[in-house]
């Protein structure tokens, strides 16, 4: 009798606990919108050597919502030659604020913790553990495409996250 009650109790608790834990841990698996090639802009809209902040328009899902053609992320684009474009995520590799152009020097800087980067995205001063996160680009019919990714912040290695 006693064993029955104890056993029933354990099974009963488990029946509640297992789905509860699964429910609460579900976000750890994460979704993924990394690694998509997204149209950025026409190549001739970029002046050589002049960084331009470009928003990437794509579909964005968040839990139960799916938004069509919204601003998914942003990148800094610099045209370095006739048909070579370099791209960096605007997200600071330190703690995720949005990188801006530096007010006084050429290059970039983060308004939160004062990390600064040179025009090639290499870190100069401040707490950022790595250079700006470079993204792959390709040019098709005069249009720049960027492979959009998100990375884990705050560590020296550049690790893609979901």
């Amino acid at each position: 009798m006693r064993a029955l009650v104890v056993g029933g109790g354990v099974v009963g608790c488990g029946a509640v606990a297992v789905p509860t834990v699964r429910f609460l841990l579900a976000p750890a698996r994460g979704g993924s919108d990394s690694g998509r090639w997204i149209r950025a802009l026409r190549l001739d809209a970029l002046a050589i050597g002049e960084p331009k902040r470009v928003t990437l328009i794509a579909d964005h899902g968040d839990a139960w919502t799916l938004e069509k053609a919204v601003e998914l992320g942003a990148v800094w684009l610099t045209r370095v030659g006739g048909s070579e474009v370099r791209a960096w995520s605007v997200t600071c590799p330190h703690l995720g604020c949005a990188i801006d152009r530096a007010a006084t020097a050429p290059g970039f800087y983060c308004p939160c913790h004062d990390s600064s980067f040179d025009p090639d995205g290499r870190r100069q001063t401040g707490p950022s553990p790595r250079d700006l996160d470079a993204l792959a680009t390709r040019i098709e019919d005069g249009v720049v495409f960027v492979e959009f990714r998100r990375f884990q912040m705050g560590m020296p290695a550049k690790v893609t996250i979901g």
Partner: peptide, 25 residues
Amino acid sequence: VVEGNILGLAPVIGRFTQQMMLGGS
């Protein structure tokens, strides 16, 4: 967002805790 990334700095459990807090990546 910044606080979540600070949590993410913690060794081993950082990334997991961050995702628990943000509800995803």
